[in-house]
């Protein structure tokens, strides 16, 4: 358990960085430092976090960083880890990538690194659109959301990255949210102890791109979990487990109605009075939980297929 008061009193983030007010990525980076301390190196492909670093020769993110071309994060991290291993150094190599750097342009390098079971932590900090370039649609933008390239709302659903990574049969896959830092920190600490490829998908509501007030980042993040839009779970060595904050939302009657989540964001404004559109989002939630149910019931061999093969 992570207890706030037991976290050492030190600088975790880096004030004076270039993030927008209320930025979920800056929040996430502080939790990353709380969890991993000073042993981590970040590999950051193009995205908001490239800009958050601010202007050299200073950097507004409190980590050593290798900035890298958009499509290359999974690969560059693999090389770094190999070099550290060769030199007998046990540094933690963390990819900190946005939704584009993970699910779209970065997907190939991510999939390759996962398939090779590289000993790295890959974090997708998911603000559900290309925010850095000005809120364009991504593969992780949810159905119906306005973006600057989907003026009438996106017509397709969000790509379900965590399930795709589970299908890669890596030792550890988890979802997290900036609204639940304890959960995220705990998952990071666990990931740091596991050898092999670890994937954590961090839900990161963005006040600028999602059109909500900058003070509401935490609230929106928590609503995503409470409505069942963003279930928190872990998949560890073949065993699937809902995280404590999401457990009760398996029962649909316990979930906060999705409209509560949609209506505080300007990006869904145009579909609030279209019940058929909201129904599509509800169906997406149902499908996600159907997958979760399937995974809960069918897993728990306590070993990944990879380990079974090696036996």
């Amino acid at each position: 358990m992570v207890i706030i008061h037991k976290l050492p009193n030190r600088r975790y983030g880096m004030p004076g960085n270039a993030s927008c007010p209320g930025c979920p990525e800056s929040m996430g980076l502080r939790y990353l430092k709380m969890a991993l301390g000073d042993k981590a190196v970040l590999v950051i492909p193009a995205g908001c976090s490239s800009v958050i670093q601010g202007i050299g020769p200073k950097s507004g993110i409190n980590f050593p960083i290798l900035n890298i071309a958009f499509a290359a994060a999974g690969a560059a991290a693999s090389g770094m880890k190999a070099a550290f291993e060769v030199q007998g150094k046990d540094y933690i190599v963390v990819v900190w990538a946005g939704d584009g750097g993970t699910a779209d342009i970065g997907f190939q390098a991510l999939s390759g690194a996962a398939e090779r079971n590289e000993d790295i932590i890959y974090i997708c900090v998911d603000n559900e659109a290309y925010m850095n370039t000005g809120i364009q649609r991504s593969g992780l933008t949810p159905y119906g959301a306005w973006t600057t390239t989907t003026w009438t709302g996106k017509k397709e659903h969000k790509k379900n990255m965590p399930f795709i990574l589970i299908a890669h049969d890596v030792p550890y896959v988890a979802t997290a949210s900036v609204g639940y830092p304890h959960d995220f920190i705990e998952k990071l600490r666990k990931a740091a102890k596991i050898k092999g490829f670890k994937y954590i998908h961090l839900h990161a509501p963005d006040p600028v791109g999602w059109r909500f007030d900058s003070s509401l980042t935490v609230k929106v993040a928590q609503l995503a979990v409470q409505t069942g839009m963003w279930p928190l779970f872990e998949y560890e060595r073949g065993s699937f487990k809902l995280s404590p904050f999401s457990k009760k939302y398996k029962d649909p009657s316990k979930r906060v109605p999705v409209i509560e989540y949609l209506k505080i964001q300007g990006r869904f404004k145009h579909l609030l009075n279209k019940p058929e559109e909201i129904k599509k989002i509800e169906e997406y939630i149902e499908r996600t939980w159907w997958w979760i149910d399937l995974l809960e019931r069918s897993t728990n061999p306590a070993k990944t297929a990879r380990e079974l093969l090696n036996k």
């Binding site: 880096m14 004076g16 960085n17 270039a18 670093q53 601010g54 020769p57 200073k58 950097s59 409190n62």
Partner: peptide, 8 residues
């Protein structure tokens, strides 16, 4: 660069 306050 090196991490430092006021990069922006």
């Amino acid at each position: 660069s090196k991490p430092a306050p006021a990069a922006s």
